[in-house]
Design a protein around this nucleic acid. Sequence first.
RNA 1: GGCAGGGUAGCUCAGUGGUAGAGCAAGGGACUCAUAAGCCCUGGGUCGGGAGUUCAAUUCUCCCCCCUGCCA
Length: 523
Amino acid sequence: MKPFYITTAIDYTNAPPHIGHAYEKVLADVMARFQRLQGRQVYFLTGVDQHGQKVQKSADAAGLSPQAFVDGITAHFTSLWDKLNVRYDGWAATTDPRHKRVVQAMLQKLHNCGQLYKKSYSGHYSVRQEQFLTDKERGPDGNFGEEWGEVVEIEEENWYFKLSDHVEWLQNYIRSHPDFITPAFRTADVLNALDSSGGQDLCISRPAERLSWGIPLPFDERFVNYVWFDALTNYISFAGYLADECGNEGLPRFADLWPADAEIIGKDILVPAHAIYWMTMLHALGFTDEQMPRLIVHGWWNIKGAKMSKSLGNVVDPNSLADQLTPDGLRYYLMRDIATGYDSDFNDERILMSYNKELAGGLGNLLNRSINMAQKYRNGLLVAGDYDDPENAALRQTVTESLSVYSESMNAWAIHDGIAAAWKIVTHANAFVDSTKPFSLAKDPSQAARLDSVLYHLAEAWVHLSVLLDPIIPTAMATARAQLGWEMPSGFVLTDLKWGMLQSGHQINTPIPLFPRLETNAE
RNA sequence: GGCAGGGUAGCUCAGUGGUAGAGCAAGGGACUCAUAAGCCCUGGGUCGGGAGUUCAAUUCUCCCCCCUGCCA
């Protein structure tokens, strides 16, 4: 089976990352880790989009060269991914010379087969903002506002891509491939957009005198490529597309990886960028229906009901949250409090509460009390024994059921349901302690066999948790396994997980709180 | 105006053609191994409004209202 190729949107390097960036990358990382846990080989690509006008202007304003400017912002992204344990295999930076070569080769290819043409366009141009204005930018009085400064009418030549040639194919492709977009309801937006503006070709250039920070068109050096053929191309250029003819090295073999099993994007860049521009670009390059990527479209984190925006001043900084909650605490919240594909409400009181209640009080405390009792009553020595009863059997059954629900949910991108499935074990095991009362059994020598079985069941339930939750909170689960004295054998896959991972006579380690409880401001 | 999503317990949200569920929050109780954690019990919703299909609708159909987003 081919490797699971998973990508994310590449982030624009004109401002540091916010919680939405973090969510998308953690989602990709969780899925990558889950696929590996299923025994699948994985290639995880993420990166940054570094070209364009905004970067050029921000760099000018900061008195830096564009490259120095984007290097600085890029460092914010890479250090955040390190901190959050987002473990990617490939890094797509659009200023990478290998990427530029592929973009140019692609453009040349399309030019050769007549898919690109030059056309002049005249319109209103804001000198101050260095951009063309459309009717959208007009104020209520029909004029362009003060913020645009001097507005002049100019005529400009540019290169266009014959997107319209591929619209009919795309409509058919979408109708016949219901798996193309997850969640499926987003498909309607795409078809709708195609119906209303399907005849429009795509402008792919800017005159070099206006935009210098970009990739020159190989067949017309007076122009620089504008956005789409640069940014979207990363998904194939860094997967080794045209590597041989471009002399690119150190990249995967394209034939092995492509098509992408999951291109994770936000709902804002589905239409038109990914579902229309990207798909028609691929089609124009000769990619077949079988070589099209699958899109996974996620929703947004709103902040207490409002959209997150710099002007509202409610941008949530993932760095400080990771410091406060630990990286795993943040990863957990980002995965459990949103249904993949939908929006969710980010609430700083709720995130603390869920950390304390679920991670500290539920999951962490279960590990702590289980290990602590094993140490206290048996010096950490677990005995499997022959004793059994319905309560033990019920816990084992919960573990088994949870495993299958987890697996099904995760494969369907319902991470929150996967977590909920694992949490069935947490809840049951905590109740199991209260109903079996190992602390009472310990006082009665005639109950020794039962006590052993209870302690063993708790440890074994936790071994299962440490595997199921590993993709989501990998650091904490590695710590937990160390406390349990159990390591996942190398090459261990989900289907290897069965009751009885711990041998009789297993020695357990010392308990240390996994997620120390955090004080809240309210107290 | 068109399209999409949503309108279910105080809050955040699941869910299903057969007299509604979870987590959190609130109230009460028993316990003590544990991170004052965990466990048990309780309260409370005419599932946005109306009509239709059906033996039966929160779940299907139609109309309307409200919120959000995209497009025009």
